[in-house]
Amino acid sequence: MIRLMSLIPLLISIVALALSYVWLHGMPDNPATSLLARPVRAEVVSVDVAQRQQKAGYFTTDLAVTVRYAVDGETVETSVRGFDWIQDLDTAAAFVADQIEDGHMIVRVPASDPRTAFRPDPDLFFMGGGIALLVVGLCLLPVGVVVGVAGARS
């Protein structure tokens, strides 16, 4: 019983690390790990802002930006990822006014998949939460190992 219970800190740290991986990389549409990708100055082909009626008086906003850039001697035309959480017209307008300059914008292109373009700024909510989970997981990992070893020896 004590041996089993001494594995609890290790279990907590593994769960925290798995959740932080999901928050930092897996779940958000513009993940914090895209900060590691190379910034590329891309030509904006089109900006489409559209309202969609969900209910009688309730509208949501879709923002779609198509960009064109050259990578590895090949021209890629793709839709920028990271606008899933834009729900209102003000946020869409702020993005267009902030990020698009002279028909160009910076996109982040991961080396593993150059056909994917992320918006340059990651989601702060997921970045902060993912870092908090990562710190908890990393700090509890040695505690888990030490307690686990001590429990196994008892």
Binding site: V47, D48, V49, A50, Q51, R52, Q53, F59, D62, L89, A92, A93, V96, A97
Partner: peptide, 17 residues
């Protein structure tokens, strides 16, 4: 101005400075 498409009965338009 930047036109807003889709279901836009009130005729919203985005004004970029």
């Amino acid at each position: 101005p930047l036109a807003v498409e889709g279901d836009n009965p009130r005729g919203f338009v985005i004004l970029l400075p």
